[in-house]
Simulated assay, not measured.
Amino acid sequence: MASSTMNLAILLLSVFLATSFALPSDFSIVGYSEEDLSSHDKLMELFESWMSKHSKSYASFEEKLRRFEVFKDNLKHIDESNKKGRSYWLGLNEFGDMSHEEFKAKYLGVSTDVPRRRSSSPSFRYENAADLPKSVDWRKKGAVSPVKNQGRCGSCWAFSTVAAVEGINQIVTRNLTSLSEQQLIDCDTQNNGCNGGLMDYAFSFIASTGGLHTEDDYPYLMEEGTCEEQRADLEMVTISGYEDVPENSEESLLKALANQPVSVAIEASGRSFQFYSGVRILVPVSNSCRGLLVQGVFDGPCGSDLDHGVAAVGYGSSGGQDYVIVKNSWGPRWGERGYIRMKRNTGKAQGLCGIHKMASYPTKDD
């Protein structure tokens, strides 16, 4: 018995060494292998392969060379980070040819330079919620639509808003309907379309103007358009209003999340967030040798200067790490099929990346 336990321990240790200090054998997780880094020619081959995978093309040879240099710099950052043995991988995703400054300018969009409007209801309806479940996943409950892609438009605030409205609508009506971000971009003049906005303003707009159209009736353009008021006779999904989650309180966020998806703002401008890929396999530090821990929980680095709107759609634990499940709007190829698990119980009142600072949710009382 002691011999078999020792053999298992040796096996787990060998896996730990392989997974902690080398790239995974399934290179699709990170998008490259060690061999790709061995020469300029290999890097160029990798770049061509990456271009094909993501349907990239450039207007000139000079632009292609410039993008190749950006690509190499991003790959260096990704590889150096992966070799630090973090609990998550970074991957060579579709943003691989964008400088970090370009990425921040195109894919973020929460406006913090305008005052946040407090909800019309000063109460927090979930204040007295007790006996919260250990984990919640609104995807499994049918309240989350497929991951969407905002493209190069700073409309994350609209996607965050819509995800929360889709969630409460499904919970109340039992009908999951994909709703229109484009309507908010075109018609909500309190916000700034592709130049950013706030989820509270968007909730207020929806509640006061009769609701949101479906995605099919008012599809996404990836740019600002003209408000289509003539579509008013088509199907609309309504909300009653919205409420803010008490600031800097993880307990309050979990109380709300146990009852519905929640709009949250985070700081997503870090380079590691740009290339987050997800799952990494680690060995537990334990004498029991019960098996492998599959992690992938993002634990930074990031600050708390809010610049991106996303939707929290659940919470849980993995490998001893507690996390919040966050739905992003950068398409299903980013992160864990469009999602990121963000560490909670960090000891910071603002939460990881400021996730506790500006959370809110729509209400639907009819």
Rank of each mutant, 00 (worst) to 15 (best):
M342S: 03
G320Y: 10
F273N: 01
E235H: 11
L11C: 10
Y107V: 00
L13K: 12
C289N: 15
F273Q: 01
T238H: 07
A2N: 12
G320M: 05
R118G: 08
V110L: 14
G167L: 02
A105V: 06
K106W: 05
E94P: 00
F205M: 02
V264R: 00
A2V: 07
E69N: 13
V114T: 13
H213Y: 08
R341P: 04
G296S: 10
K134C: 06
A359R: 01
K106E: 09
I340D: 00
V310D: 03
S49W: 07
K140A: 12
S135Q: 15
L352E: 09
D305A: 11
V172E: 06
L8T: 12
L17S: 14
Q295G: 13
E235V: 15
V172L: 04
D113Y: 14
L221C: 08
R125K: 14
E127C: 01
I325W: 04
L37S: 04
F205V: 03
T19L: 07
D299Q: 15
N259P: 01
M342T: 02
V283I: 10
R337I: 12
D216Y: 14
G303C: 07
V262M: 03
C187P: 03
S28A: 09
G303M: 06
F159M: 07
S99E: 07
T363E: 05
R344Y: 04
Q190W: 09
Q295I: 09
V264N: 01
S52R: 11
Q190N: 15
A312P: 09
D200T: 13
S286K: 10
K84Q: 12
L292G: 08
A268D: 03
E267C: 02
L221G: 01
G351Q: 07
P284T: 04
I168H: 00
S123N: 08
